[in-house]
Amino acid sequence: MIDVLLKIIVFGTVVGGIWGLVASGFSLIFGVSRILNFAHGAAFVCAAYVAILLSGSGFNVYLSILAGLAVSGLLGYLVYLLTRPVRKNEVMVIIVTLALALLIQQILLVNFGDKGISMLPLVQGFVELNNIKVTNMRIASFVLAVASLVSLDLMVSKTRIGKKIIATSQDSEAAMLTGIDVEKVLILVMVLSSILAGFAGILYAQIFAISPETSLKALIYAFAIVILGGLGSLRGSIVSSFIVGYILVLTITFLGARWSEFVMLLAIVTILVVRPTGLFGVEE
């Protein structure tokens, strides 16, 4: 019993950490701009592809990772540029970002095929905890993810930039009146969030593997987490990313792997139906 519990905590926490990086950015973007960034999964995948391809062709692995992060940041900026003219038009924002996501997915598919590619883990080996083998890479990913999430939370809640971000998400027009350059805040949030997603993608590619289809998977997880945590609530997203991680592992352990996707999707729909503002959300 202890074994099972430990297993659920260990595996759920690691997965939760990675998805937390994706979801927190998704949530931040929605918070400041009311944009549902359907192209968020693309940043996740693109960063990983760039890092893998560069390091595979002989570049230093850390520089390759940096390049991957830069590309995901650029992608965030691209989303900003593309959505700027239609920001007031909900329909078009959704359509434009969704089309961008699928466009990138197809470009990857045509050029690199549908098979997964993966990255050599930066740290090899594993440790045994009470008969459970946990790879060092998983532990490293967890530490890195939590460190990033904590610094993100600190940045938002403690720094001046963070105050601007909060002000903009609460009321962008009022923020503008108090002299905050809302556009700059938007750019910052979009780029930063995309880099976080890219970082998650690079970690994911080391533990698992990445393929063009992974972008949709990342998006769905981000969706699920953000809905659970409440749209626009950063801390809600962080907490619920771990909850989603545990649900996933619980499902695999007790119901069987075949139900993992189904239960996830069903859980999202149920939450939306029962408590549409999410567990930590506030009424709009």
């Binding site: 459970i132 083998k133 998977k217 069987g256 792997a257 075949r258 996707e261």
Partner: peptide, 15 residues
Amino acid sequence: VRVPRGYSEYEQLIQ
């Protein structure tokens, strides 16, 4: 064990 499309959590199954 049956796994759905896109499944990735094999470490648990291996163990």
